[in-house]
Design a protein around this nucleic acid. Sequence first.
RNA 1: UGGGGUGUAGCCAAGCGGUUAAGGCACGGGGUUUUGAUCCCCGCAUUCCCAGGUUCGAAUCCUGGCACCCCAGCCA
Length: 560
Amino acid sequence: MTAEENNRSANFIRHIINEDLAQNKNEGHVHTRFPPEPNGYLHVGHAKSICLNFGLASEYKNGLCNLRFDDTNPDKEKVEYIDSIMDDIHWLGFDWGDRLFYASDYFEQLYDYAVHLIKEGKAYVDSLSAEKMREYRGTLKQPGRPSPDRNRSVEENLELFAGMRAGKFADGEYVLRAKIDMASPNINMRDPTIYRIRKTKHHRTGDNWYIYPMYDYTHCISDALEGITHSLCTLEFEDHRPLYDWFLDQLPVPCHPQQIEFARLNLNYTVTSKRKLNELVEVNHVNGWDDPRMPTIVGMRRRGYPPAAIRDFCERIGVTKNETVIDISVLENCVREELDRSTRRVMAVLNPLRVVVTNYPEDHTEMLEAPYHPNQEDLGSREVPFSRVLYIEQNDFMEDPPKKFFRLGPGREVRLRYAYFITCHDVIKDEATGEIIELRCTYDPETRGGNAPDGRKVKGTIHWVSAEYAFNAEVRLYDRLFTVPEPGRQDDWHKALNPDSVVTLTEAALEPGLRETKPEERFQFERIGYFCADRKDSLSGKPVFNRTVTLRDSWVKQKK
RNA sequence: UGGGGUGUAGCCAAGCGGUUAAGGCACGGGGUUUUGAUCCCCGCAUUCCCAGGUUCGAAUCCUGGCACCCCAGCCA
């Protein structure tokens, strides 16, 4: 099955793979890997890489994708990140089966290969300090100079390297370097460091090692040891590719994977650099990595984004080498699309305005049937209680409405969704503040269910809850984190933070059935948006809702 | 003349010498609607960074420019 047959759009990586398959390269196998460093939380940019790597593997016959933690820098890595990363990948809908690996699993093999390089005269132990090494490296336009240690004998190199491993030297005293070309126009080839001394406890290997291998050296070998066929990474590694290939050419590795680079994802109105995300957390602009405003996977999860929507998004944005900034509306559209078909509709009044139906009997309640979805019967229906005192949305009433306002106003008639037509007769205000505190309306008993037997039409339909039966819940309205499209480009990106990225409502009145909402359950609050019960703060019988995304609203545009 | 990349609509993105230059998002217009939602129509690049050239024919090939991004960690 080719990608195109599978109804996905073409991209250059699929073309490469199709070509390889056509030539029976790698015995016709596709084997990718997702190689995160466990030094932070995954974000939407990683989601692109996850979907690409796992997605590619799943769309080709016998394709496989490994999860491999690139854990070669114990100073920055923690087990808690490993756990969160695995959770996130599973939540997104992907699985690595029994192929969970760690670069640290290969430390012994990596060491042996390094010895091999030394024996071949292709690596040497250098005593240059970090500063000196930078000096010797030259600049972008000028070639570097060889280190005085460059021609150390193989025997001496072997002995020193063994000493490094044995912990005989202090951090920074020596490094092992590949012997390539100090005059290369590609700085990565100017004798890159492949091992450094770091007397830090590693989260998996503990105190076994005093030396740790560098990324460029580790990554290509790890790929080869796992039989990876296509090693996908981001653009900034493009000029590391000659080095990736160099190591594999020098060493007796089982195979030679192909590194292919693609552009990382940038989304407007947010930031995705680990440093900036960390800063948002540190200075408490957000409440942790899983704050619903964060573009982290766990943040989007808490916000209510369905995993299927994120996968769809990653498919739609494509894969190229163009550096682009994707409009956040593409993501939001994917979320709406998924939620529209999968979610039950219910009624919730966010900012309640009291309505007394003066001609409705006191102490009377009736149950009205309301389907959960306008065009998906299989989602069923529920009954909602109607009684004399109701709440409607404050902004569904205007004392002096413009002609195009299809909602309630003095003397106007509207439909209460699935209930009755009501007409407003009086507006009660707080004498001191002038604030509207109550509406007096009458209902037409003939319009039960929302249709008038006389065929008369009503312009607007608004949502409502019974004041007597509704319950109060906290609802959080989330909005984009930044007010400008590319905050990362500003000198002071903090100034672009949206002060209204969250508005917490505590007076919302929800239809009674919602009381038993389970954490992470999603609903559409009719005419408002999609909401998800917070997975952390919801209590049994007392859910807290997060707004995932608003409904599209052409009325907002018309008002302008 | 350090090296490596990228330029197709407001934002993405197909396209691989012969197509009316796909599709999505955004935007505009209309229809259906008990959500100003959904859904459904319709519109939206005489032109592919620019300039030359090759060719019967060029977004696709060649030459020369221009713009933007990445690289001088003992980070990944």
